[in-house]
Amino acid sequence: MSRGVDSGTRAELQEAIREIEGMAGLTEATPRLRVGRPSAAVAAQQSPFAARGFKSVRGGVADAGPRPGGFDGESLPRALAIGITSPNYKDGKTTMAISLASCLAHDFSAQVMLVDADFQTHSVGNEYGLQGRPGLSDVLDGTATLPAVVNRFRQAPMTVVTAGSVAGDPARLARSERLPSVIDQMKDSNGFVVMDLPATLKSMNAPVIANRCDGVIVVVRAGKTTRRDLERVLELLQDANIIGVVINRQHSNVPGWIDRLLALPR
């Protein structure tokens, strides 16, 4: 599953990444996230998994090769549309999408749009108390324009687009001819578009929307997601540009001293 890229495109990507890192001042030695502290700004700055995850994301994008509808190898896209999916629900894809979008906005001061593309669960809208607000489905249905459904946060360069209020067939919405143009429109006004996709094994809309993204991150839940599930996800997303995997809710039962003594692999 090697996804090569020509040297010109790689150099161009790496240059852009260096610029982003220069803005953010991101370091590896970020302190550990303090669970239960609702101080948003501090917690976001202290989120090592998001920081490292994003650095890995851009690394994955740099390694990603040409793909239909994505990078053409000639020019670096102005913005990146990153889809977040998982094999099953409750694996943490919405958590990852929210965290990634938040940290992108905070750490890189980049304009970020968080899009709820899961027309069944409306997880992002529910999380932010935006239930019933018009969103992506309204735009795809043609009953609203994209600027009209954008929820903007005044104190950070981040916007949220809910799944929308149209009670239509999710499959029809996902296969809407408007979707590519809507995503392009999102990328026109944002540095990053983070899309919360449905669970791949639970909805056939996930591969459809994932194909429209520049890259897809698959979130697996440690100890729950099986390798067979992940292999089925990869089969379903074979036409998408999979950047990599994020292992969510990872925890270790091994005492630290035993871990060090046995030099266990990560």
């Binding site: 440690a222 099986t226 990560r266």
Partner: peptide, 27 residues
């Protein structure tokens, strides 16, 4: 146990591990 817990469990799939998110448990 066929579940995925670490990078070792992804061997052969050709996918990089972008990050590990720790389990956020209530205090």
């Amino acid at each position: 146990d066929h579940s995925i817990r670490s990078k070792d469990d992804l061997a052969g799939l050709g996918l990089p591990v972008l990050g590990y998110v720790p389990n956020l448990r209530p205090r």
